[in-house]
Every structure is written in C-alpha cells, then in structure tokens.
Nucleic acid binder design. Structure first.
Lengths: 335, 335
DNA sequence: CTTCCTATTGACAACGCTGAAGTACGTGCT
DNA sequence: AGCACGTACTTCAGCGTTGTCAATAGGAAG
C-alpha cells in the first residue's frame, strides 16, 4: 500500500530506476521505445515523484515561495491567487508566506519558510528593498510590484501611466480640486511613480498640486487607513471636487467617510482608486479605478523566475507593465 | 558557503549528528549540558534543518496543505490568512492550493500538491464530501466549514445559531417580509443549518417562510451572484422589508442591485450578510453580519490537525463553533 | 571480421536526516 | 561482588532521487 517509487516503476518497465528518472525529466538519450515503456509503467503503478527525494538529490523541490504582506487586503489576495495558478500551470507548487511587519519575522522569511523553495516571488509592502540589504539571496527572487532596486528581477506596475490616466480623466471631466488620499512616505510627502504620473497630468492642464489636499493614512493600504485619512481631511474643511485613493482599499475607506459626511459621489466629488480589485465593481457607486494588467504582470513574474531557475540571465531584469483606466460611476460627470 | 548540516553542528558540539537531531526535536535522554552545547553550536554555525532530508527520513515535512476554492472571495482569503498564521505559530509551513472546480484538478489536489504535506486543511466550496468518496486519505485531513460528513475531523461553523440570531434581530426590529438571497442546492430549495436557523427564528414569531422571497444565485458565494439573484427578485416585483444574504459576498452584490433600483438601505429594506469579512464594515451603509468566531475555528482546526499528526484520536472529531450578531447600520430601524 | 564510435542504459555514491538497535556508564539492589 | 536497569549517547542503514561515470550494444568504418 506504500507509494510506488522509481524502483517499482523500473521493475515493471524492466529498466533501471535511473532510466525512469531520465525519462521523467525529459533527458536526452532515451530511445522512443524505452520512453514509452516507462511512461506506461508509470501510469500502471500510479507513480508520482517524491519531491523530498528529488529535492535532496539536488533536482529542485518544485516549490516556489510567494511572499505577501497579508491576504485580507483584496489586492494581495487576488495577486496571490493569480500567482499560485500561474505557477501551478508550470507544475510548480506554492508555499505562501505572510510577511507580517516585524523585522524579525522578515529575517525568518527568506530563511525558514523559504528555505526549501527553489525560488521566491515577493510582493513588497513598504519599500522593503533594505530587506535584502547585505543578504544576497541564495536562490532566484522576483520582486512583484514596488519600487525597482536594480538588485532583483522586478515586475514594475504601470503606476505612472495609470495615475496619469486617472488624473487626466478627472481633469477632462471638469474636476479641478483633486484631493489625494495617499500613503505616508519617509519624506512626508507623496513620491514615486504614482505621484509623478499625477504631476504630469496636472502639468498638461497647467495646474499645480495643492499640498493642503494631500493626506496620508497611517498604514498605506487598508480601508481603515483611507477612512481615517479622509475623515481628517473632511474635518479640516478642505474643499475638493475629486478624491483620488492611492489604491482601491484606501478609496473604499474614503468612500465610507465621504458618505458619512453627506458628500455625494459623484455629484459632489468624484472618487477613484487603483488596482482594479473585484471589490471596486461592487461599491455604491461602482468605483472608477485603474487596471494594472494583472495577467501580464503575473506572466512576466513567472517567466522571469523560470528563466532564472534555468540559470538564465545574470543581470537583474525588469518588466514594466502598462495600466489602463476603468471608468465607472464614481467619477461620473458632476452636476 | 554551503548550508550547514547536522554533521557540521555535531562537529562543533563534539557529539554525534544523531544527538543534535534528538536535541532539536526535543527528544528525551539528553543531558542539560549536552543540550546547551548543541544549541550553542546550532546558533554558532547558523544551522537550519533541511526539510527535504527530514521528510525523506520519515520525520515529516512540517508542511500543511491548505485547500481553498479561491482567494478572491474575501472570506476564503481571510480564512487562509488566519490558518497560515496559526500554522506558522506552530512551526508549520503552508502550501496553499486553489481547488478550482474541475474534478480532474481535484483529483490532482489531494495527490500532487498535497503529496508532500504532512496534513491537509480543506475549506469545501460545494458540499464536496464526495471528493473523498472512496479515497481514504493517507494523511490527516481536517475539514474547515461546510457540512460535516462524519468521515473527517470537522470544524463546523455556527450557522444555525448565527442565522437564527440575524433572523431574530430583523424580526425584533419590526421586519416581517424577509427575502433570502441564498445558494442553489441540489433540492432546489434552501437547506442546511443556515436555513434551519432561519426557520427556527421565524417559528418563534409564529411566522412561515415565503417561498416567493427566496432566490438563489448561480454560484453560491460571489458578489456577482448576489447581484444577479437580487436583480431577478426586484424584477419580479417582490415585496420585502429585509434581505438576508447567505454570506457577505452575496449581500454586497445584493446591495448594489438594491441601490441601483433605488431601494434605500435600511429605510426601505434592511440588509444582512454572514461571515464578518473586513469588507462588511466598509460598505455604505455598513453591513450587519454574523461573526463566526474565526479565531476559535482556526484554533480548533489546527489543534485537531496536530492531534492527528501526533497519532491522536481515531474517530473523527467535530468542533462546533458559535457565532454572534454584529449589528450595523444596514439593518437600522425602518422609518 | 575486427575496431571504434555513439547512442543508450546501468551501477554507485551521495543528498541530510531519522528510526532502530546498539554501547557505555553509573545506580541501586541482593 | 554481581546483576538488572535507566540514562546518555553512538552507530548504522536506509528514505527516494539524481549526477557521475562506467558499461553495453549496435552499427559504421576499415
């Protein structure tokens, strides 16, 4: 009743275990006849490789660690799902690691959980490039989203392009006083690709950003954070005709704060998010957002990882995804 | 620069590799002095166990497969997160498997991905007890939620109690015509613990359920499904003063449909969900829901699994969780 | 018919760890 | 003094797979 091993298959196919192994791993030098006989034997005894054995012998574990900050934020959950499915399509199993914010745990992250994985795909929360500072990873690592550091293969989200598109969309529809519910940054002011995109669009209209309309939540992408920040802005009596959330989660939080204050969306103010999470389609009103080409990003990440596993390129690669506007009712035309 | 092995540690501690192994696994028969010496050596060389080696030798892989239908549904994502963290606290790594609906993939599920896991925690989507039909799992499996089959260790959600509580809550606040946005069942009519709880509460008020107020979505727990079902009910011109979603996702979908039809929540109709997902707190208005005691459920599941891994009980165990109402604005008092 | 080459397959030794089965050294008892 | 026993370790043999390298067979070349 024991699980069949290579030896069992070999006995049936009347070859050596090693030959079975070779056939299974698509090695050259195996006659068509042998190959077929082996494959039949495999099916006959219901053989499935023992990953532990393979990993020990140096054949790789077939396991990839996907590291996300959490799963309760829809963006990460949806991203993790896409990655897991894409990896599964390549025959790779996923170990999911939740990298909570503690540094100690971080340390363990790349060490322990990740230890038996052939490679890692990491979705950074903060700009945790320093995470890798000093420690050269001993296996392929792909960074998914976040700011590229030039140290790792990175899939870059089309944030600049995307934010430029939403900003332009708001300006096109007559909005002029754009509030930003943003993430806190070391500098205390918005920065990064996102902000650049915003500035570029403003510039096209000959406008300047208004610092009094920018707020940052305590944590950069939770609904509660958006709620909190928006409440603060409203309490300050700010005047605006549009609110841009740094992402959907923050926008959803802001939405609740806005409604609690009697601000009508989109009549009194337009509202936009970023990420195109499932949730955005079902808010009331449905949320205008930006879709970051999830599929392309995931494909690129998996491809980069597999290249690297195969001993590919030695300089860090970068894939820049595009992004496009998904206009919905929350940014409908003002009265 | 190779990763240190037991032997390296042993050399430093001046004991045999096996003793190091014993100390690390908290085996009896190791003097305090030796234990300490080994631990220091472990720290000194930065040893971390090689899971593959341990798994091969029969010590278990320290890996648990968590199987969920998907991650884009907040309930599953949040549940997966809780499970992963709880397992990590026990030193167990999680392999996350997305069991999409195909039967073929299911087959592979318990075979492949799961193959190198010491145990499995499965969150059933449909009542997939038949999933296990015939195939006796060769490793501990805990069923998380869903209908208990008596075949597996099961954590049962407090659905009956929970639905009884919401129903009573609605009746208490004067609602009488309760619409049900439910899941499709083989019988074509609502069933299970949830429905029983609903009936019990109605009964307490001397009321009968109204079949014309029950609709089922195409898929049992997606927002789109709730939207679709609710739209149908509205189109049919049904009259109701409350809508109960079978879970939060469905309720969120129904909410959008209701608002699109100009139904005011809670003035014209109350709305309730089930699961207490993060999302429910941020809908407009915030959604009344039922909290299934997530922590207790997760703890029970992990405990059951670990008991079983330790060769515990041989008859399937069952843990029935409780649930309590989380009243919010969506079921505020009608005008 | 012999020799050499190549395609194909096999034998063997790891990989890092653990269970089983020792060995060695007290201790307490008769 | 002799014996049984418990503690504290060690030795040994794999677990299932793969890389290395040797071995074999079958054919082409001489």
């Amino acid at each position: 009743m024991k699980r069949p091993t290579l030896e069992d298959v070999a006995a049936v196919a009347r070859v050596s275990p090693k030959t079975v192994s070779n056939v299974l791993r698509d090695r050259p030098y195996a006659s068509e006849a042998t190959r077929e006989r082996v494959l039949q034997a495999v099916a006959a005894v219901g053989y499935r490789v023992n990953r532990a054995g393979r990993a020990l012998a140096g054949g790789g574990s077939g396991r990839i660690a996907v590291v996300v900050p959490n799963l309760h934020q829809p963006y990460y959950a949806e991203t993790a799902e896409r990655l897991i499915l894409a990896l599964a399509a390549e025959g790779l199993t996923t170990t999911l690691r939740i990298a909570s914010d503690r540094d100690a745990e971080r340390e363990a992250a790349l060490g322990d959980t990740t230890a038996d994985a052939d490679g890692v795909i990491i979705c950074p929360h903060h700009l945790d490039a320093e995470l890798l500072e000093g420690k050269t990873p001993d296996r392929p690592v792909v960074q998914f989203g976040g700011l590229p550091t030039g140290l790792l293969d990175t899939v870059v989200m089309g944030q600049r392009e995307g934010f430029k598109a939403v900003t332009r969309h708001l300006l096109d529809t007559g909005r002029r006083r754009l509030a930003l519910v943003w993430n806190a940054t070391p500098s205390g002011r918005p920065d990064g690709d996102r902000f650049d995109g915003f500035l570029e669009a403003l510039d096209e209209f000959g406008l300047e950003p208004d610092p009094t309309l920018m707020v940052a939540g305590s944590d950069w992408d939770r609904r509660a954070s958006g709620y909190e920040a928006m409440t603060g802005l409203l309490a300050a009596g700010a005047e605006f005709d549009a609110v841009m959330g740094v992402n959907d989660a923050v926008a959803v939080g802001a939405l609740r704060a806005l409604r609690a204050h009697g601000v009508r969306i989109p009549e009194d103010a337009a509202l936009t998010g970023f990420d195109d999470t499932d949730e955005a389609e079902f808010t009331v009103p449905p949320l205008t957002t930006v879709s970051p080409e999830h599929e392309a990003m995931v494909d690129a990440a998996v491809r980069m990882l597999i290249d690297r596993l195969g001993g590919g390129a030695d300089t860090p690669q970068e894939y820049r995804a595009r992004a496009h506007l998904i206009p919905r009712a929350s940014s409908g035309v003002a009265r």
